[in-house]
Simulated assay, not measured.
Amino acid sequence: MLGTKGTIACLARARRLLRIRNRLVRECLAELLSTFVLMKKGWGGSSAQKITSFETKGDLFTTYLAGALAVMVGIYIAGGISGAHMNPAFSFAMCLMGQFPWWKLPIFAVVQTLGSFISAGAVYMLYYDAIWHYSNGTLTVSGPRETASIFATYPADYVSIANGFLDQVIGTGVVILGVMGIMDTRNKGVPKGMEPPIVALVILSVGCSMTANCGCPLNPARDMGPRLFTYVAGWGPEVFSRGNGWWWVPLIAPMLGAAVGTYLYQLFVAFHHPEEDSDVLAEQGSIVLVNTAIDQDIAMSPTQKDTGGTAAAESPPSPSASSTASPTVPVTPLKTS
């Protein structure tokens, strides 16, 4: 009993000493931990097991399942604190939607990359003996006993840079489309608290159908962090030259794919939701663009609204702006569960 009380008292003192009140720091810590879990429990650890174990070699579904489940765990860990982006491409999509401030994007990207780098180190330590045994004592980036692909992604020998780039744009776009649909409170939606496993299923479906070309990175941090680790850990500069200099594709293509997925969802779904009061949408945590002002010259009458008419939307002009200012669409903040 005394031991229990002493432990509780010790934890209470530690909490008082270590508790961080700065919101940005707390978000960065949560993002770091969730990204670490994503890579350690998911892609990195499962890839190491698949590549170095002759018994499980070729069991791709296990790798993708582990990655999807790691996404789910990461969201549960940090979803209510940082949003559990774990991916600069998703952070970029949230910026495009006005759900995330642009100034935080580079900070989150660095933190996510750092989490992936640390996770790669943890995977290397955990599978140290297996990696050196499998590689016959030589850390190689190509060849039949290469081990660099445990950490970063590389295209198949027959895949061109252009084809791989398109692969990543489409793959990331599909993921963002799915996430947008899940988070859209004016769409079908999912029960509160069930978002993580549903997102995991989206990741699993993409992993099972779009990974043959280049391993399906879909995440600049997931690829660059481990690639930097392999560079400094002994694999050398070939980690940047293999695949005709493939390394930049997982950095750029997922960001473009995130923009494509975001805007496709808006153009095909979100823009066509019925008009609703922006305060109501904010209370619901809507992730879609919200029309809050209608130009008086083209506004609909109540009769037109009832018959399904449409009207163009634009933001109220600033005091110094002219009446021909470029249309913009304000958004409501995202409420994370």
Rank of each mutant, 00 (worst) to 15 (best):
G44E: 08
S34V: 11
W43S: 13
L33F: 12
A70T: 03
K57M: 12
D59I: 00
T56N: 04
S34M: 13
L33E: 10
A70V: 06
I51Q: 07
A48W: 02
K57L: 02
F54H: 11
F61R: 07
S47C: 15
K50T: 12
S34C: 15
L38M: 09
G67K: 01
W43K: 12
K41R: 13
I51W: 03
K40A: 15
S47P: 05
D59R: 08
T63Q: 15
V71E: 02
I51A: 00
G58V: 01
F36V: 11
L32W: 06
T63K: 10
L32S: 10
Y76V: 10
L38K: 07
T63R: 05
M72D: 00
A70Y: 02
D59L: 07
F61Q: 03
V37W: 08
L32A: 08
T56P: 06
G67H: 05
L38H: 01
Y76C: 14
A48R: 02
W43D: 12
S53Y: 00
K41T: 14
E55I: 03
A48F: 05
W43V: 14
A66H: 08
L69G: 06
A66F: 04
A48K: 02
F61Y: 11
G45K: 00
T52N: 04
L69C: 11
G74T: 11
T35A: 10
I75N: 01
F54T: 12
S46L: 08
L69M: 14
A70C: 04
M39G: 02
L32C: 09
T63W: 09
G74H: 09
D59S: 09
I51K: 00
K50C: 11
L38G: 03
L69Y: 12
L32E: 01
L60R: 03
G42T: 02
G42N: 09
L60A: 15
G42Y: 08
I51V: 11
A70R: 06
T56K: 09
I75M: 13
L69E: 04
G67V: 03
A66I: 02
K41Q: 15
A68L: 04
M39V: 10
Y64S: 08
G74D: 12
S34F: 07
M39C: 13
L38Q: 01
T63F: 13
A48D: 05
Y76G: 12
T52K: 01
F54A: 12
G74P: 11
G42E: 02
D59C: 04
F54G: 04
F36I: 10
V37I: 15
T35E: 10
F61W: 04
G58L: 02
K50W: 10
L38A: 01
K40G: 10
L69P: 06
T35H: 08
L32Y: 09
A66T: 08
A68T: 04
L32F: 15
V73Q: 09
K50N: 13
G42D: 07
S46W: 08
A70W: 05
Y76M: 09
V73G: 07
L65Q: 05
W43T: 13
L33M: 12
A66N: 13
G58A: 02
Q49A: 10
L38E: 03
Y76T: 14
I75L: 14
W43H: 10
K57H: 11
K50Q: 15
S47I: 06
T62A: 02
K41M: 15
K41C: 15
